[in-house]
Design a protein around this nucleic acid. Structure first.
Length: 478
RNA sequence: CGGGGUGUGGCGCAGUUGGUAGCGUGCUUGACUGGGGGUCAAGAGGCCGCAGGUUCAAGUCCUGUCACUCCGACCA
């Protein structure tokens, strides 16, 4: 942890977490507000972060056989309405296009809140045979949902994401795809973003409109609230039936394919901020940090300093490290604070004293420690430090998750834990909606998921006292 | 959609009983500085959210309106 607060402009986390978040997002140059509520400008630094996440995911998708496509932005109203649950889920938050120029359209068009209906319509035209399956599609795009409350990254009205959509011959294959893609998200979070996850299935109340099953990865933020960070849905053949998607199967009869969709959005950037950030600002995991190392020349006017700094940059670049130097005439102290705020994992200082000793100083954003590195072993040491920082960030987040996940046997106990500590609470659950609602009302928590890793934390549902063998993780969610 | 708050240089704010707009920071230029947000000097930058009204005179008072923001409800 960084010891003292160096950056004065950022509100203390403990004092006001919401304000802290807004401060970090704006001061670190991630977001600017636009003229329209809920529409945010994702500035270059944040976009670079998104690109790195895209790069990781896109590679994984393609390795698993998926292809990228592009679907239209607009959905005719009639198309949106084909699947009953789906419309009901999304209708309250869609925006409509009613005019083309000054002419009123004969049918109004919805700006996509998600593209299931577009994919389905397309598939109903192109799918003919079992030989066409599976269809493994993905698109990178932005979608629009007219949210009432908006926050940078966490809830935009327009947000960027990827949505994968697949069609399969059998239920088993589709279910396997759903699980597989959840694992891809979990891998991204844990191994790249250093965000430990709880994997599980959503309750019926929380699942996606029109889905048969929704799977989720839930992360715990620094304020111990939950962030749903990625979801994967199994649709069965419900959409296929609604959209009349059929194919000739191996027995030469007509079948409905089984379908999945899965998505992860720029919301995850909010997750990174709230998982790793501190009172000095952002704190980015090296694996996805747009800049991994910032080189700061000290006493840059002295002979040889700038040249040496440039040399370090060249060497680190050649070693495959994302590195930049700041040769502006701001004071070193200013630069230290600035790049800490931006969450750059490692800072290298190089000045006359170092050059004399053939070394440089390396300061870790994660630990706050500063130590000399002999220039002869620059690349290896930097690489090693970046790995340690990545591991340290993960461990700290994991500890936060572990230490703030508790189990309870009674409703009152859940309420007390949430009031006192926040975090996640595990209880048994009978499976009824009524009890789930009761939990929200009394304890103020929603079900985050039914974790894959089940435990017997009791014998009965804490609300209705019926015998239960399903465990649910509850929490306050973003 | 309910409840609170705020709108004044880019950002953060002050502006008293109405009298013609100021501070901090940032920005520009230059010099000195430089190992944790440096010092000095000289500059640029305002339809006081918008629309009405009261008044000799409105940032200030009145009415309306819009936007943003926080807390709920709704949602990724």
């Amino acid at each position: 942890m960084a010891k003292d607060k160096n950056v004065e402009q950022i509100t203390d986390m403990d004092q006001d977490f919401g304000q802290w978040y807004t401060d970090v997002v704006t001061k670190a140059g991630l977001i600017d507000y636009s003229g329209v509520k809920g529409f945010f400008i994702v500035r270059p630094y944040a976009y670079a972060l998104w690109e790195n996440i895209q790069h990781v995911l896109d590679g994984k998708f393609k390795d698993l056989g998926h292809e990228n496509v592009s679907m239209p932005l607009l959905i005719p109203e009639s198309l949106l309405q084909k699947e009953k649950d789906h419309v009901e889920g999304f209708a309250p938050e869609v925006a409509w296009v009613t005019h083309g120029g000054s002419e009123e359209l004969s049918e109004r068009l919805c700006i996509r809140p998600t593209s299931e209906t577009l994919f389905c319509d397309h598939w109903s035209n192109v799918l003919k045979s079992w030989r066409d399956l599976p269809m493994l599609y993905n698109q990178w795009c932005s979608v629009l949902r007219w949210e009432k409350t908006t926050r940078p990254f966490l809830r935009h009205r327009e947000f960027m994401w990827q949505e994968g959509h697949t069609l399969h011959e059998t239920q088993e294959e589709a279910e396997q795809e759903t699980q597989q893609m959840l694992e891809v998200y979990a891998d991204l979070c844990e191994n790249y973003l250093a965000m430990p996850v709880v994997k599980g299935r959503k309750t019926d109340k929380e699942k996606f409109a029109g889905a048969e099953a929704t799977y989720t990865i839930e992360c715990m933020m620094h304020d111990r609230k939950a962030l749903q960070s990625g979801t994967s849905h199994y649709f069965g053949d419900g959409f296929a039936k609604a959209f009349e998607i059929q194919f000739s199967n191996r027995e030469n009869t007509l079948s409905y394919p089984h379908q999945t969709s899965w998505g992860l959005s720029t919301r995850i950037i909010g997750g990174i901020i709230m998982t790793h950030g501190d009172n000095n600002g952002l704190n980015l995991p090296p694996k996805i940090a747009p800049i991994q190392v910032i080189v700061i020349p000290v006493a840059a006017h002295k002979e040889g300093v700038l040249e040496k700094a440039a040399e370090l940059v060249t060497r680190l670049k050649a070693a495959g490290i994302r590195v930049k130097s700041d040769t502006s005439d701001q004071s070193p102290g200013w630069k230290f604070a600035e790049y800490e705020m931006k969450g750059i994992p490692l800072r290298i200082e190089i000045g006359p004293k170092d050059i004399e000793k053939d070394q440089c100083m390396a300061a870790s954003r994660f630990s706050g420690e500063k130590s000399p590195i002999a220039l002869t072993e620059l690349e290896d040491k930097v690489q090693e430090m970046l790995e340690n920082i990545q591991a340290g960030l993960y461990k700290r987040a994991k500890d936060n998750l572990t230490n703030n996940t508790r189990s309870a046997k009674t409703l009152e106990e859940v309420r007390a834990i949430i009031t006192e500590h926040g975090g996640f609470v595990k209880t048994m659950w009978c499976g009824s909606l009524a009890c789930e609602m009761q939990m929200k009302e009394i304890a103020g928590v929603t079900s985050r998921c039914i974790p894959f890793e089940q435990e017997q934390v009791g014998a009965v549902c804490p609300i209705c006292q019926k015998p239960s063998d399903t465990m649910v993780t509850w929490g306050v969610a973003y």
